[in-house]
């Protein structure tokens, strides 16, 4: 009738019963450590998430900006290549360069303070523009046109050659030598 093997609660000494019950819950220290660890991991994850989001957004922004700059540079290179004269001008609000070809409309590139680089022709055949660019400055040295992009970290320069002006120069040097 009274079989101690069937009911282990009866046969366990009280000290063991208490120990067993205590093991079922967490101690205050355990909870505190767990909360602390959770906080640290959460902070790290939030930081990592923020960093990832920023890195992705910056990469996309930079990629778009580079595409825009490359597109403008390709057009400017073509215009400079065919230019018979390179005339630059700058004031407080803008920087510009005039590139007249032998035939066809005179091309003017202008950068305005609002970050817009535009290409216009006279007589007008349409305007192309590139927005949100870093500050741009033009300078000319003989048949070379230098475009300076004033980036935050450092200035980047791109030099364009006028094939037309180089050929003219070579031609006049040859004529001078022949004389």
């Amino acid at each position: 009738m009274n079989n101690p093997a069937k009911n282990h609660l009866v046969i366990l000494p009280p000290c063991q019963l208490v120990t067993s019950q205590r093991r079922r819950a967490f101690t205050l220290i355990e909870i505190l450590v767990w909360v602390l660890l959770l906080a640290v991991v959460s902070v790290m994850l939030v930081q990592l998430f923020s960093l990832t989001t920023h890195a992705t957004r910056d990469a996309q922004k930079r990629d778009t900006l580079l595409h825009r700059i490359d597109s403008a540079v390709a057009h400017l290179r073509k215009d400079a290549w065919a230019a018979t004269k390179i005339t630059t001008a700058a004031d407080d609000d803008s920087s510009s360069v005039e590139l007249p070809p032998v035939d066809g409309p005179v091309v003017t590139w202008r950068y305005t303070k609002d970050g817009k680089l535009s290409r216009t022709t006279v007589p007008p055949t349409g305007t192309q523009s590139w927005a949100d660019l870093p500050p741009v400055a033009f300078s000319a040295h003989g048949p070379l046109l230098t475009l300076t992009l004033k980036a935050v970290n450092r200035d980047e320069t791109e030099t364009f050659v006028s094939q037309q002006m180089l050929a003219q120069k070579a031609q006049s040097a040859k004529t001078g030598a022949a004389k």
Binding site: K78, W81, A82, Q171
Partner: peptide, 10 residues
């Protein structure tokens, strides 16, 4: 013969 126009194919 002298160069008249130059066009770069970008």
């Amino acid at each position: 013969w002298s160069l008249h126009t130059a066009t770069l194919n970008t």
